[in-house]
Design a protein around this nucleic acid. Sequence first.
DNA 1: CCTGAAACTACTTCAGT
DNA 2: ACTGAAGTAGTTTCAGG
Lengths: 152, 152
Amino acid sequence: MTLDETDRRILRALQAGGRISNADLAEAVNLSPSACHRRVQRLEASGVIAGYVALLNARKLGMPTYVFVEIKLATQADEVLDAFEKAVARVPHVLECHLMAGSADYLLKIVAEDTEDFARIHRQYLTRLPGVTQMQSSFALRTVFKTTALPV
Amino acid sequence: MTLDETDRRILRALQAGGRISNADLAEAVNLSPSACHRRVQRLEASGVIAGYVALLNARKLGMPTYVFVEIKLATQADEVLDAFEKAVARVPHVLECHLMAGSADYLLKIVAEDTEDFARIHRQYLTRLPGVTQMQSSFALRTVFKTTALPV
DNA sequence: CCTGAAACTACTTCAGT
DNA sequence: ACTGAAGTAGTTTCAGG
């Protein structure tokens, strides 16, 4: 799928405000509402736009604690990875799980109410993950910034 | 701000689909459209709902490469942290920047087209960040999962 | 704090260029 | 591909319980 500058402007606007009205979006990108609407539908249908979400304020919800957990597995055998990934999908509070290059690590990003809440998640869930040989948790003191917007 | 179960249902629905119509949302949470609308406005005004965004498919935009960069600074003096944070805010492709506990590290999450593109970002921007004494980059081979939804 | 109705605004489609 | 207009649907406000 090929994007022109107008498409990119649409994507930038929607990444900044997912609930902008089609009328306002059309005006922002210098298009008539119907032409703009057609382009947005095309971007949605092609999957370039994966979806729309509300972003919540973790602090106001009493979950200001972010922890990154690095995990080393015993082996990189597919069955071990599969079992680990199926298990980690069931752990609550895990926002991201990445398979990492280098030492066949996983990197998890976890959100919690406080360090005690993380300790509970750790005891209750992380220590039960299969195939793990090493685990190191790093706490974020402060999120300097964070965006969901990709550079387009 | 205190949330009841209906508020939490609203938040879960909006985290799953930020563009759901108020009418459909009202039906999903068993409320009249006007009552639902008032609750959503209250959640927005209180800041619990930080905003709405479109999420894009990084792969379809040709940026499938995620890199986590751990950075150690020479000192933890406030001026050094400030200077670092101001500088990192100007680096393109950085999606997240966290100040980490333990060894006064920063953790960056960077998105790139491929490893060469990351090498360019590294050369052009990361090596110029002030106060850095050590930097270690870890590539994600595969994102197992990723969500923006907080558990509410 | 909710409901229901009314007024307003926006979305979505389609014929025409 | 885009425009403009028409029909449909949704939002938002407000009087009343």
